[in-house]
């Protein structure tokens, strides 16, 4: 196995172009597990730890640009206000040691449907920035996930950043695990409301071959939500939203839980997320008034 260790971003892109089957590694929290368990024997590893700009973050034309290698810990500690749902997801990732190394770029690269970062990226309509020697392009997270561990990223491309729109309403992330920390999601759900556009975004994790959106649920809640006064939606509306989220999932039975339970848990998380959003929305109205 070759170990490619570029020291600049340009070298990294060139290396990826020359070795499209090289697996990028940064925190190693996913890749090393796969190597240790013998699940993967890539011909080369492409070490990105020496590229400082992958850890940069800052404003970018109305977005928060988050370098692909920004560790979860930084998102929790410094970017919570700018990315509330993603920060909640980051806090739910594994253990402090892993949060110090793991990054959203790694989650996107691995594209496991259980990755904690995916549902918030879907819910807030984030963009994924992909770079190669051919140039840079941005793909909506909602267009990024193509199949089980398959994405819009081309073989010669590296994930350089994600771009998160300015929060414009309440956001949340919840995840089910059978212990209270350090657990792979049995199912996860993210909700983001955009008060300006009066739209709802959702993201479902670990309940389908890819991270999923509940599009019917989004439309339903956007039309039912009281965008002016944040009156509590009727119990029937909340229940219906939960059902629509659950029905958007395509879960299976596996060692972590049953398909039936995953749908059930999604409906519960969705209902709770709505009630939290209403509370947060009212606070926001009160603050702006």
């Amino acid at each position: 196995m070759d170990f490619l260790s570029p020291s600049t971003w340009e070298e990294a892109l060139a290396a990826k172009s020359a070795h499209p089957d090289a697996v990028p590694i940064m925190g190693g929290t996913d890749v090393m597990v796969e190597l240790n368990f013998g699940r993967r024997r890539p011909p080369a590893l492409l070490d990105l730890t020496r590229i400082p700009q992958l850890r940069d973050h800052g404003p970018d034309d109305g977005y928060l640009r988050l370098g692909a290698g920004v560790p979860y810990t930084t998102i929790i500690e410094r970017l919570r206000d700018r990315s509330p749902a993603l920060a909640q997801a980051a806090r739910a990732v594994a253990s402090p040691q892993i949060r110090n190394r793991g990054s959203v770029g790694g989650n996107l690269g691995g594209a496991s449907p259980a990755g904690d970062a995916h549902p918030p990226l879907l819910a807030v309509d984030a963009l994924v920035e992909l770079a190669s020697v051919r140039g840079v392009r941005r793909v909506a997270a909602r267009e990024f996930y193509h199949g089980p561990r398959r994405t819009a990223r081309r073989d010669d491309e590296l994930i350089s950043a994600v771009l998160l729109p300015e929060p414009a309403g309440p956001q949340s992330f919840s995840k089910i695990g059978t212990r209270n920390a350090m657990v792979i999601a049995v199912a996860s759900f993210s909700l983001a409301l955009d008060a300006q556009a009066r739209t709802v975004g959702t993201g479902i994790g670990s309940a389908g071959p890819t991270p999923l959106r509940a599009i019917e649920a989004e439309k339903f809640l956007a039309s039912e939500f009281d965008w002016d006064g944040a009156a509590s939606p009727s119990p029937a509306t909340v229940t219906r939203f939960g059902e629509l989220v659950a029905s958007a999932a395509r879960p299976i039975d596996d060692v972590r839980g049953s398909a039936h339970y995953r749908r059930h848990a999604l409906s519960v998380m969705a209902r709770r997320a709505v009630s939290w959003a209403v509370t947060d929305y009212r606070k926001e109205i009160a603050r702006c008034a």
Binding site: A92, S172, S174, I176, N180, A185, M269, R272, S275
Partner: peptide, 16 residues
């Protein structure tokens, strides 16, 4: 959240 079932995965704010 550390005092609740589900822990920091934020599944409940006291509901249920």
């Amino acid at each position: 959240p550390r005092t609740l079932p589900g822990g920091v995965a934020n599944t409940s704010h006291g509901e249920g």
